[in-house]
Design a protein around this nucleic acid. Sequence first.
RNA 1: GCGAAAGUGGCGGAAUCGGUAGACGCGCCAGCCUUAGGAGCUGGUGGCCCGAGGGCCGUGGGGGUUCGAGUCCCCCCUUUCGCACCA
Length: 820
Amino acid sequence: MYDPTTLEEKWQAFWAANRTNEPDLDAAASPYYNLMMFPYPSAEGLHVGNLYAFTGADFHARFQRLRGKDVFEPIGFDAFGIHSENYALKVNAHPMDLIPKSIANFTRQLGRSGIMYDWSHTVDTTDPDYYRWTQWIFLQLYDAGLAVKKEAPVNWCPSCKTVLANEQVEGGKCERCGTEVGQRLLSQWFFRITEYTERLLANLDWIDWSPSTLTAQRNWIGRSEGALLRFLLAGDRDETLEVFTTRPDTVFGATFMVLAPEHPLVEELTTADRRSEVEAYRSTAAAIDLVERRKTDERTKTGVFTGGYAVNPATGEDIPVWIADYVLMEYGTGAIMAVPGHDQRDFEFARQFGLEIRPVVAPAAVVEAAGDTTSVELDFRDEAFVEHSEDECLINSGQFSGLPAAEGAARIVAWLGQRGLGEPKVNYRLHDWCISRQRYWGPPIPILYCDACGTVPVPEEDLPVVLPYLEQFKPGDDGIAPLAKDESFYLTTCPSCGGEARRETDVSDTFMDSSWYFLRYPSTDFDDRPLDPTRTHRWLPVDMYIGGEEHAVLHLLYSRFITMALHDLGHVPFEEPYVRFRKHGLIIREGAKMSKTKGNVVNPDEYIDRYGADTFRTYLMFLGPYQEGGDFRDSGIVGPQRFLSRVSDAVEAAIDQGATGFPDPAVERAVHLTISQATRDFENLSFNTAIAALMELLNKLRAGGRVPTLDEARPLVIMLGPIAPHLAEELWQTLGGEPSLFEHAEWPTFDPAKLATDTVEIPVQVNGKLRATISLERGATEETASATALADEGVQRHIGDASVRKTVYVPDRLLNLVVG
RNA sequence: GCGAAAGUGGCGGAAUCGGUAGACGCGCCAGCCUUAGGAGCUGGUGGCCCGAGGGCCGUGGGGGUUCGAGUCCCCCCUUUCGCACCA
């Protein structure tokens, strides 16, 4: 009788007492670091989505363990951040009181889930013993010139009352609360991740990650090649307008320019008669609901003329300068040269305001037909001509007319470069990482400001800068951080001159906490150093990282950057933190997304109470392909429940009967086939098919009320280990194995010779349609196969009077007779 | 709009190299066991036709390559997820 509750309590107690899940971090012979993305400990408790992710990672870890690896599988808590802080505000509590309770609850829930965590090496980002080293990392980057303070327009969420990183803005709205994000100018700390852009990009070519995650990172970095061109302001003024373009070949067609409304040169350019209109547009542009316009496909262009002109560096003509909100300040230089003939957005803008459209690129065939490059007629009915392959050439472009577009681009940039008006340029979407947060719930940034000495880093020996327990931690709407209201925190003395100094009162971004937690796990027992060199060398980089694709660009990019920077500073011997990364899918419920408002969230506790952790794990991994996610249907969980119960019954029956060996060759073959199949499936994280393979084997072992022998049952029990570890331990012990299964059992191997049969059933097709199956000796010749097939009544009937024109024979696979 | 992935029974999903489509599970049907079953066990289960031997159709739609296509190529439709006026 299978009774999960007692069984699971028994084995969880055994694992804890025997430290089964704690590898010897100093002596392990084959270290394998299996990492999963640590959770944010929400007050609502563990979400089944977390458990889905962790369970798959644990299947992998236990599989590696049974294959002889010393697997280190740690867990921790990403407990700082806006999410916790907002929740505390909502329930009128203090995060410093709430978080320990949430962590305790998570620990309880994870403890009964059957996951092989090493609880002796955990991390809590809000623990001063941890964030001391987060601050230490800031200091390392500061000393290296990679942490800089700059005044910058930043995304400001009026509801959360904080600055947001670009990554935290989704479609112009705050990713947390959905409020529309505005802009503010503040002095902020930035990490210069853009110094690492090319390396972050280049390494994507060799790290072993899920392809979609690699693509997401490439797109996020957003490399594009082009040129920086300079347009002098008309009227002999000193300033130039710089633009980035990917199409320098079209510069002769630039008939106007467009600046982002907040571009700093707008003031300078605007003429007196245009001032009121420009001012009006600038103030409304910020308020216009860009988000709504982006959602609808309606892309009506708006903008106003500044009254100012700039000089097209190629033609020497004065062209009007406009402002419009379709040009974004945060990309490129915040200004563009508009080429309405060859850019769809500029085309629409020109149409809207009646500006000149001048063709400068045309298909080579059209040019040839026209005879020369000045009399080409292009018809701009409703779209710009954007092609520029080798089949297009320049027209109306002075001495460059007639050149292929690509060649023309290079020649034009070189030509402008001679006059200092242009140069090749690679532009990136990626910006420096703003880590300042005017919030409370994060590690204080370890910097002091002294009137005499200026900006002074907190000496390493003074770390951690402890976050005080602030009664009033609610952020103000003035952009001033909560810590700035606590004199006892910010008033201090300068370590350099001993004079009065003031602490930085911003805290750092949560993504900084999570950018290095995996580096810390192996070294948590050292409190005098962040990373023990020997431990780090033995365990890192991470062998397998499993996590959600929602972190494809944020966490995964920042942690790669931090690791690279620490590598350059000599603190870690590798520059990529994760050798392998695999994304897992998302789990939905009865075809719909899980959400609190729908009330369809799965609470793991209820299911574990009712079915046990083993059944719950098995079901989670069985309901669909792990890397794609799946649909959690309550009706489906009884399948895995029956399966585990039947395995238990089968082993009990085997013991009662006491037979050994492999008396039935067909069953022996099935055992070997299953080992082969399940091994491959586990290697590929195809847990759903691995479970199916074991179910199939069980069906064969029990076919027609059969009782398996002990030797037939044993491999099944071992392979059940990663899936249902408690039950597998119990059955292993019942079969006479010494516990723990994970220390004393070995993953079974299969004998390829045992997979083959003497005879094979192969399909016979006539003209590609299945007509019969025949039994042949393995490796039979085509003659034998044809003869056997032609002797078959059903085959004969389909051939009739026709003759066999062609025979396709794939030995041991198929025979196809082509007649006609 | 751009990018990525995916469309297979009543449902969740299988199908290494182009070679017997629907493994495994849920549900359903029949039988057994039971005082009883929302328990357990055994067997069956893509659709349509049938003279009971089989036949035809079938992996979103339409073309194509091939002896043979869920799988490869072209066009189209739908869904999901990213990004979203990126110059």
